[in-house]
Design a protein around this nucleic acid. Structure first.
Lengths: 348, 348
DNA sequence: TTGAAAGCGCTAACAA
DNA sequence: TTGTTAGCGCTTTCAA
């Protein structure tokens, strides 16, 4: 029997290569490759010997070399014009989980509203030959299409949309979410429901207002124009809104339900109502938006809120991107449903 | 003059390769490479012709091929045992920014407290031949060293530490942060300062308590054992703590300053004090920890808080990891200083 | 100044 | 059943 080379002797600087495995196992590189990739016809004994050697010397295939050969990098890029924040995070996590299961790596990039930086990031990602791209952004406005991109690179916009109508965008169904929240208020008996919302220039604010109006109409209620008030996305605005809707207003005109633009506004309203001795949910019921548990759980009473199901959004984005990488063509704007999480602020 | 091949004809599936550039420019691959990499001696005219062709056909070097040759992937991995949350996010952003400047890609992995998943992620990252690794975690306890890793792979633990004392860990200086907060209370005239903190099993809680005691001792004040109270990291606990420290307690024994374990607890105390008609900051001053602006700004009055400077932590982690990739050996536990952000809750 | 060729680590087609 | 080799796209050394 020939003496086998010592286990420690290596060629690659990055750890053992398949050449080391082959040499030590006493087979050719081709055979080693076949053995490690479960393919082809090979004597079981050879296969076992090779895999055992690989295990012993801690061989790990070099993805870069594999990718170079396969013309697939097994990576995707995710680029955010907003920094990754409260909203994009659950999306990111869902994506990460899904891609990790398929052994696809994720390159994170953050270009906080700087087009030049975005271009650099994109350039960098394209250099890495990503197989797909996820674009996330702050939601205020539609963003310009990312690019220029090599033709055929799958892209999905999540939690943002773009004017390019050949692109795929996934966003929450704001209108439907609002309808859910307001319907719920109607169902528990509210008849004068106010909409305390964020800045009007947000498209989401407009859509939710549509949902609010639709739910009222469904129930045969007329919307009091004075009951739609817009301000900042803050608790302070929520408190101010209550002052505006309640102080010095004849009881018959006061709202008996508040549908709020986000959980911070809602929490502000709860505090202000509490200070005025107005009972929640008995006299006024309150519903928020976002279902941010930092807010919903600390509020007194705990806050009912509309959940945008961001994890589901991320999950769906991952699924669709994988389909596109697989060759499918998918485009259009998809709005995913929200759900309502009922807590004490609306539990009668 | 020979007819040059059409600009559109490509060899690579991923876009034009250097071979295409060379062919179209009518030079050899070696020459093209030299021209594009600014190196070697080359006629200016040739260099220009090559770069112009590259620009025209949108040539972008393939990082995987470069890396394969250079034995450097120009990527780092970041793995979190906690999901990326409020604390790890600023760290992540600082890291991302720094690496992006050096054209180093970041692979994100999230293994929520699942060792098996962590192992998979690690395997995946090592397959990608990352040049370095950042480990982040929830902060409760020291985590076991990540591994096994190939010898020589630079690793930095951020916002967590491990028992392996050959490793490098970066964490905020909790004790120093607490000292800052309590000193500030002393300086504005507080004499009976309470510590309203989180669960005792957190190492950070213990360290901050040391800082609290040290600051009192410095000022010649004696700590009332009844003024150190521990509970959950929640607003509800902050409210309860006020009940415990104030209700039915003789005025002379009530605290005139509260140093809180985080901003949520602090906000809870502010609400409870407000409800009792106790003036903040006049009768009682309050300092929080984390400087989470969602809390500090919505609190009434706005909350003074200790900032852990997480962005600086991330920045330093990036810097050190780059040094390690460059060949330096760095180890030990480094605690980075906190700073105090004063707002109305302690402004007399 | 430019071209040719080896090699980074791997896979797959083909030969033995 | 196993070995040989071309080639993925790039850099770099050496030769012309």
């Amino acid at each position: 029997m020939t003496e086998s080379p010592p286990l420690t002797e290596r060629t690659g600087r990055h750890g053992p290569t398949i050449r080391d495995v082959a040499r030590i196992a006493g087979v050719s590189i081709g055979t080693a490759s076949k053995a490690l990739n479960q393919g082809g016809r090979l004597r079981q004994e050879t296969r076992d010997r090779v895999t055992e050697v690989a295990r012993q010397i801690g061989y790990r295939p070099n993805d870069m070399a594999q990718s170079l050969h396969r013309l697939r990098s097994m990576t995707v890029g995710i680029i955010s014009t907003d920094s990754f924040g409260r909203f994009t995070l659950p999306i990111l996590q869902a994506l990460e989980e899904q891609f990790a299961d398929r052994r696809i790596g994720i390159f994170m990039c953050n270009a906080t509203d700087d087009p030049e930086r975005e271009r650099q990031h994109l350039d960098h990602l394209l250099g890495k030959r990503i197989d797909g791209l996820v674009v996330t952004a702050r939601r205020a406005d539609r963003r310009p299409p990312v690019g220029p991109l090599p033709p055929g690179l799958p892209v999905v916009y999540v939690f943002t949309q773009t004017d390019d109508d050949t692109a795929l965008s996934l966003i929450p169904d704001d209108e439907g979410g609002a309808r859910l929240g307001v319907r719920h208020l109607v169902e528990i008996g509210c008849r004068r429901i106010a909409h305390v919302t964020g800045p009007l220039h947000f498209e989401a604010v407009q859509l939710r207002h549509r949902g609010y109006l639709a739910a009222l109409a469904e129930a045969g209620l007329v919307a009091d124009p004075g009951h739609s008030v817009s301000g900042a996305w803050s608790e302070a605005w929520g408190r101010d809104a209550v002052a505006r809707l309640f102080d010095g207003v004849p009881p018959a005109q006061r709202p008996d339900g508040l549908f709020c633009g986000n959980d911070q506004i809602a929490r502000g309203t709860l505090e202000a109502l509490r200070e005025r001795g107005i009972a929640v949910p008995r006299e006024v019921a309150v519903v928020g938006f976002d279902n941010w548990n930092v807010m919903t759980d600390a509020a007194r009473p705990p806050l009912t809120s509309v959940d945008m199901n961001l994890a589901a959004l991320g999950h769906e984005a991952g699924r669709l991107l994988l389909d596109m990488i697989g060759g499918e063509t998918i485009r259009g704007i998809r709005r995913l449903p929200c759900t309502l999480v009922v807590r004490q602020s609306s539990q009668r």
